[in-house]
Design a protein around this nucleic acid. Sequence first.
DNA 1: CCTACCGATCGGTAGG
DNA 2: CCTACCGATCGGTAGG
Lengths: 200, 200
Amino acid sequence: MNDTKSRILAVATRRFARAGFDGTSLSDIAQEVGMRKPSLLYHFESKDALREAVLVDLLGHWQTRLPAILERAHSGGDRFAALFDEVHGFFAADPARALLVLREVVDRPQETRDRLSEAIRPWLSLLTSAIEDGKRAGSLRPEVDPEAYLVQSIVMIVGSFVAADLGAAVFGSSDGKPWSERQRIEARRMAQHALFFSRN
Amino acid sequence: MNDTKSRILAVATRRFARAGFDGTSLSDIAQEVGMRKPSLLYHFESKDALREAVLVDLLGHWQTRLPAILERAHSGGDRFAALFDEVHGFFAADPARALLVLREVVDRPQETRDRLSEAIRPWLSLLTSAIEDGKRAGSLRPEVDPEAYLVQSIVMIVGSFVAADLGAAVFGSSDGKPWSERQRIEARRMAQHALFFSRN
DNA sequence: CCTACCGATCGGTAGG
DNA sequence: CCTACCGATCGGTAGG
């Protein structure tokens, strides 16, 4: 992938995330990259091809980084908190990507779900197995629905970004910790108590 | 509000939810209502005025029904589960409205947050107070961050609708309960264990 | 509530 | 990588 193409992809990813696919014109993207629309269409033969390339790039990026994320979580002392924070940090490092995927899920449900499921199924399967093992070993709550649990955990993590400013708007600015921090900590706490027997 | 106006509002709400504001043309809406675009613009002077009216109608609808929802939750035996299910049912009864608000939060963050917070602040304040009381009385976990907790609970409830088909795509069709049901039950369980001391 | 029409903008093409 | 241009569609208006 040459430099120009990846510069276009970076700009398109950010703008699709912020303004949506329909809300972003090829001229907008071209201008920010520093060229005219027809030149952009030399690199990507249509707007749909550009969207496709953006998604392939995004999911590829995730596929590359996910193994390291899950790996690192194994080394920490509190494995659950470490894993949760790693996944959270994964989205936090690049909120535009998370927002873009949320948009795609809403705008093109069928296609997005199919391709998204393909990308994350192996990782989720790995985690559901771990939860099933924990249930059998008696170290995790027996009522946990592992698959629904994982989906809701991800929903809360992604929701942390979308809802952070909402919390600020509803309850006013937070004294001490920023809202995004409070959302992350509370989400982690909720996920934790739902999985483990409480110590208190 | 005359009949034609409310028919337009109903159609616009559904289409804005499904295809987004930019993805829905005034001609689309007019055709479904059974008139031409200029006739629609006689009832609403611009597309933005129509969006505004849709949101006012939606939030008004919520303001009307929320008191009854919270009221009913008080009569049940298990008050927490009853309240959770009432709020869930509130969104489930009309997923288009929930989806539309999610879209607005993503597409026009600033404006939506301001007006949304105004609509739900009193209800959330009421619930945060109840949680604070429970913490003081020692019946609820002291670590709960009431405001962040409520935001995440709502995120999970709304997420149940967006993510239900996603769960199906990732893990295959569910044997027994449908995915939306499993998401609701798991979300409720997660919220419950995060708030109360566990009984097991 | 309609027909007819406007300017603006869009994705995309021709041709160099 | 550009200029010039195309047909289609959009929100909105004139006028009845």
